[in-house]
Structure formats: C-alpha cells, structure tokens
Design a protein around this nucleic acid. Sequence first.
DNA 1: CTTGACAGTGAACGAACGTTCACTATATAA
DNA 2: TTATATAGTGAACGTTCGTTCACTGTCAAG
Lengths: 197, 197
Amino acid sequence: MKSDMREERLRSRVRAISGFYQERGRMPSFSEIGEMAGFRSKNAVFKFVNKLERLKVLERDSKGRLIPGSIAAPVKMLGTVEAGFPSPAEEELADALSFDDLLIQNRESTFLLKVSGDSMSGAGILPGDMVIVDKGQTPKSGDIVIAEVDGAWTMKYLGKKGESVTLLPANPKYQPIRPKNELKIAGVVTAVVRKYR
Amino acid sequence: MKSDMREERLRSRVRAISGFYQERGRMPSFSEIGEMAGFRSKNAVFKFVNKLERLKVLERDSKGRLIPGSIAAPVKMLGTVEAGFPSPAEEELADALSFDDLLIQNRESTFLLKVSGDSMSGAGILPGDMVIVDKGQTPKSGDIVIAEVDGAWTMKYLGKKGESVTLLPANPKYQPIRPKNELKIAGVVTAVVRKYR
DNA sequence: CTTGACAGTGAACGAACGTTCACTATATAA
DNA sequence: TTATATAGTGAACGTTCGTTCACTGTCAAG
C-alpha cells in the first residue's frame, strides 16, 4: 500500500520532533522542524504543524506559541501482564503519560525519601525503595504516613479509632506504636517507586 | 538580615519561572519573565537570566535559546525515612530529579503494564501495581521478565543455570515453570510504580 | 480528461525576540 | 568619603520568528 509510506513518513517526523523536545526541553522552531523533516519551505512546515495540531501531537498556548501535545509523555500505558506483549496496532491506541504528571499532584509540597528498614515490607515497600511523600495532604486512617514518634521518624500505616491514634507496621516482626506524647505527621506517602536497573 | 529578603525574592522569581515551565511545557520569553518578575526593562531580564544561567537554573542550547536547567526536575531527593522530615536548609542542598529521566532509559522501547495476579507479591510487586518494561534490554538471570510460556503471558524471575531456563514466581503458592517448548521473553522489568492516591 | 485535494516551493512582511548601550539609584567595602 | 559592585530604567537595533500569498507538481476520484 502507498498510504503506509505516507504514514510512516509522518510518524518518523513526529518522532524527530518528539526526540527534539525530550532532549532539549523545548519545542523546535519552524525552521528547525523544516530541517528535521526535510522541508525547504517554511510554508510546508506551517501546514505540517497545523496538521499536527489537529492530531493533538502539538498544541498552542494562549500566546499562540507551540507547546508539546501528546509527545510530551514519555511512555505508553498498555494492558495487563496477562495481556502481555502488545502488537504495534495496540500501541497506537494506548495513552501516553508522564510519570511526573502521574505521580506528583503538588510539586512544591512533594519530595522523595529512600526507605530503610523492613517494617513496611508486608505492604510491598522494601528497603531501598523510594517513597513519594506529600506534606500538603491531610492524613486519613489507613494511609501510609511519615511520622515522628517520641523523637524518631518512621513510616507506618495510620490507624485512627475515634480519638486514639495508632501507627501500624506492615511486618509482624514489629509492634504497633501508640504514641505517648505528641505525634507529628510529616506527610502522606502517595506512591512507591522501585528501580531494578 | 537584609540578604534574606533578596534571596527570598530571587527564590520566588525562580519559582515563578519554574511553575511556568511546568504548566506550559515551554520556557517563558524575556518579556514574559519580565512580567512575572516585575521588571519594566528587558535589560533587567537579560541580566537576571544571566545570573540564573550562572546558577544553572536555566541553560542555553547550542542555538542560544533558553532551556530549563535544574528547574525541569519536579521533585527533590532527600534522605532516608529515618532521617525524616528535612529542614528547609537541607532541601536546598538536595538534588532535584524527574521520574521520567530516572525511570526511563529508552523511551521508544519502554512501556507500562498493569499487574494482575499475586505471583510476584513476594518481590514486593502487588496486583494493581504498574511495571515499567523495557523490551530493548537483554534479560539476565535474576531479572524479572515478562515472558510467554506455552501461549500465556506472565511476569516471573528469570533463572538460568547453564543451558536450562526456569521461570520462578516470588510466591510459594505457585510453581516454578520449566518451559516445555519455546520461551519468548518480551522484556525486562526495570521498575515498579505503585500509586496510593 | 478534468477537477480537486494534497504536498511542497519561494518570497515577502510585520511583530516579537534577544541583545546592547547609556544612564540612574542603592547598597557594600575600603 | 570615595569607590565599586548590584539592580534597575528606557530606548534602539538587527535577527529570527510565525504567518500569508501566489504558484507548481502529483495523485485519485468523478
């Protein structure tokens, strides 16, 4: 088929722009797009950009300047493990997303902590993992929180029953903590990230 | 102290630029920076930008155009859980990083899968978690892989002993799999992400 | 065979951009 | 007190940007 070639050419051009944005953190100018895509005319770029806008690959902000559309997102979200390895056709349909957008709600109040100790290993949080902590959220019962109890910092489940508050480890080796004096909750664990290589 | 005020003003200006970049995915122009920072003169912006370049907050690419420096990274990496809640002073010293950069080595060959089933729960990978899979990496013994065995897709530890290959679950409920015919490995699990809210 | 949509060339234009120059006000240090 | 760096104003300038117009070649459908 001939339209395959056209589509492939479009795709590779989008890949070039996407790569440009990923590498340099800014959108290419029209002339730069022209170079990458092999246009001699700026007008060709202009029409091309309009098409990409229609496809939501690119967008424009309120000032009319180019900003990334779907190309900003680095990975594609696909099915489940059982569904297994996706076909190229399925890949096209998948949403792309950025981990930064996915995992961070409020950038100012969020930070990262490295886990040491195995007191939460029953909850799938292992030593060496990173936890994303939001200090801006109100902790609810059942949340995993970073708390200061009697001078020491720990990560535990927060258990509230009426007025009384308990900190529960997710490992039977450790005891629940019923804070004697005051309990300072520094933040709520909103996500866990583990890197293998 | 008086220099505190200056530093705070600088900081809030950097925050404004950073926020602009986070929101719109592009760097502000000089006049936009001027508006945000409260400059009436473009030259003030020019000098200000030069300072930020020295501080590596901003950089310039080969074409001399502004690209984000340290402000591109959305979260700060701090100490361990035991170290606990960091003081503002410590926060300044911490490296900022982006999850996208941290977790993805090759954007083209990487995708995301949702975990179903508890066969890897012993390794801290629970149902509902997301695993980041790189189909471009060569699987080694001990890696967690996505594999097709006799028609079905699973996630397991890869065990190699000489010539023989075994797929090992991380849950005693399940049996190791010794593939009868061929074994297709679709990719290596490079990271796990779990979101709580 | 024509008609129209698509893909691209080339030139022209105003606006916005980043840079530079000359000058002022306010602090800090000698 | 006199320098000297820092922080800012305001105007001018050349460059590059995105946009637009008129035109050409190519393919598919009527």
